[in-house]
Design a protein around this nucleic acid. Structure first.
Length: 152
DNA sequence: TACAACTCCGCTG
DNA sequence: CAGCGGAGTTGTA
């Protein structure tokens, strides 16, 4: 049985659980646990540092190996999303065209993304310019987009 | 089958 | 032309 390493991190946006297995991050999602528990693990410590830098606009991307858990379709979509550069936004429709699917299905796959920030699904917006939905709420999504746009 | 983090199209004013 | 409503679409539980 493979062993997962878990931490509970305090961030700008609340507490998040980080899970990794064999140096690969597999999960990063909001947590109900309001206590900070950082696993004494190089990857986790490093990740937290990168995360803080991200909010301070001093880091533009997360370069970590991910272990994606999901259907083939979801992985395909997530990989496509990962290509979106820092500060860029793309529409659901754009992604849909790339994987020969429909925007509705893309939104579906995005909402199941459990690696927030690592897979930048906050950079995907509606074709009409509105933000669309987000796990943490539209306001957070907008916040992130602005954060990236204002960074230099 | 019903639902979802979408989009397009046609209708009203 | 803006705003609104509804149908079409594709993948999942």
């Amino acid at each position: 049985m493979e062993k997962y390493i878990t931490s509970n991190l305090k961030t700008e946006l609340g507490y998040f659980t980080l899970k990794s297995i064999k140096k690969k991050i597999t999960y990063f999602y909001p947590s109900n646990d309001k206590s900070e528990k950082i696993n004494n693990n190089h990857l986790h410590i490093n990740f937290l540092k990168t995360l803080n830098n991200y909010f301070l606009k001093e880091s533009s991307s997360f370069r970590y190996q991910l272990k994606l858990i999901g259907t083939e379709f979801q992985k395909k979509v997530w990989q496509e999303i990962s290509k979106i550069k820092y500060g860029q936004t793309v529409t659901y429709n754009d992604i849909a065209k790339k994987v020969n699917s429909s925007p509705r299905a893309i939104g579906n796959a995005c909402s199941k993304n459990k690696c927030l920030f690592l897979i930048p699904c906050h950079r995907i917006i509606c074709a009409n310019g509105s933000t669309g939905g987000y796990v943490l709420g539209e306001n957070i999504k907008e916040y992130l987009i602005k954060l990236e746009k204002n960074a230099k």
